[in-house]
Amino acid sequence: MGDVAAKIKVMPESPDVDLDALEDRLEAALPEGAEIRGYQREDVAFGLVALLPTVIVPDDAGGTEAVEEAFSDVEGVESIDVDSVGRL
């Protein structure tokens, strides 16, 4: 079935969260089989910056749910939303 690339929007808890450190924590929290291929950052408002990792998951692995759950529990994360998905 191939892999799927999902761009996931990670909102930090506050404008003060260190995004470089947050990248490391997201990396460490990845469920097995998933892989991060680079990050984008997006200025939102009032100093808030969203982190947008592109995560590769297998198409047959049941969607992005496992990744979303794992990321939600990471320290400094306010919320997780899937921005877009595309097949590889």
Binding site: M1, V4, A6, K9, D59, D60, A61, G62, G63, T64, E65, D81, V82, D83, S84, V85, G86, R87
Partner: peptide
């Protein structure tokens, strides 16, 4: 912009609630 729909049904949630 191409929205290429993954085959697995669990991605349907993302297609409904996603930005694109």
């Amino acid at each position: 912009t191409i929205v290429d729909c993954p085959g697995h049904r669990d991605f349907v949630k993302n297609m409904i609630t996603g930005a694109s």
